Computed example of a mutant assay.
Amino acid sequence: MWKTSIALMCLAGAAQAADCTGASLRFVESAPRDRFELQIGTQPLRAVTVDLRGSAGRLIFDTEDGGTGVEVFQPLRDEGGTQASDVADGAEVIKVALRETAAGGRAAFSIDVDDRMTSSDLGQIRVTGGEMAGATAIFETADGTQIKAVFDDRNRAQVCS
């Protein structure tokens, strides 16, 4: 009986995951620039905010030499479809305006992200999925509605209905 219940819960979870057609943001740890890849989903978007304050790794954006982060630093850079702006070194929240806003579209931007843990999985200069978990992405639709999604331990924040 309990095996059947577990199987049904797994099937229900798989069906729910299949219904995730909303916006998603994926973090890709890379050197020298970390990258955020946006899939716009079914609703047009005008901006995405990344809020690292709830992250397990106490993450920050490292944008200046000698600042809050460790060794390598990188400012915000458009990698397609975004409007890059200045980000203060050590910031925990950034809002990125989008040039490519159509439903189903894609956009990307890069910046350096570091953790502030005394003992982290790969050192403070590299971020693992477990350290990104708990951070949030806030997707702003064309009509100004804000939709929040939390990053999981696979570096992905996705809107599901």
Rank of each mutant, 00 (worst) to 15 (best):
M1Y: 05
T4V: 12
T4D: 14
S5E: 08
I6K: 07
L8A: 11
L11E: 10
A12Y: 00
G13E: 11
A14S: 08
A15Y: 02
C20M: 06
T21Y: 06
T21L: 06
G22A: 04
A23I: 05
A23W: 05
S24E: 12
L25S: 04
R26W: 10
F27T: 09
V28K: 08
V28Q: 09
V28H: 12
A31D: 13
P32K: 01
R33W: 14
D34Q: 00
R35T: 14
F36R: 06
I40C: 08
I40F: 11
I40W: 10
T42W: 00
Q43D: 12
P44V: 08
R46Q: 11
A47T: 03
V48T: 08
V48H: 03
T49F: 00
T49P: 00
D51Y: 10
D51H: 09
L52T: 14
R53V: 10
R53I: 05
G54F: 06
S55Q: 02
G57A: 08
R58G: 10
R58P: 02
L59P: 04
L59C: 13
F61N: 04
T63S: 07
T63K: 01
G67A: 06
G67C: 02
G67P: 06
T68W: 08
T68P: 02
T68R: 11
G69M: 01
V70P: 01
V72M: 09
V72D: 12
V72Q: 05
Q74D: 12
P75R: 13
L76H: 02
R77F: 06
R77N: 06
G80Q: 00
G80P: 06
S85F: 05
D86I: 13
D86C: 01
D86Q: 09
V87Y: 03
A88L: 12
D89Y: 03
D89E: 06
A91V: 08
V93H: 02
I94M: 15
I94L: 15
I94S: 08
K95F: 03
K95T: 15
V96C: 02
A97C: 00
A97Q: 12
L98A: 07
E100N: 10
T101S: 07
A102D: 13
A102V: 11
A107R: 00
S110T: 05
D112K: 11
V113T: 08
D114W: 02
D114I: 04
D114R: 01
T118E: 12
S119M: 10
S119G: 07
S119Q: 15
S119R: 13
S120H: 04
D121L: 15
G123A: 14
I125D: 14
V127G: 01
V127H: 03
G129T: 01
G129V: 05
G130A: 12
M132W: 07
G134C: 07
G134P: 09
A135T: 09
F139Y: 12
T141F: 03
A142P: 05
D143G: 12
D143A: 13
G144W: 05
T145K: 12
Q146T: 14
K148P: 00
K148T: 14
A149Y: 01
D153S: 10
D153T: 14
D153R: 08
D153Q: 04
R154I: 12
R156F: 04
A157M: 09
V159G: 05
C160T: 05
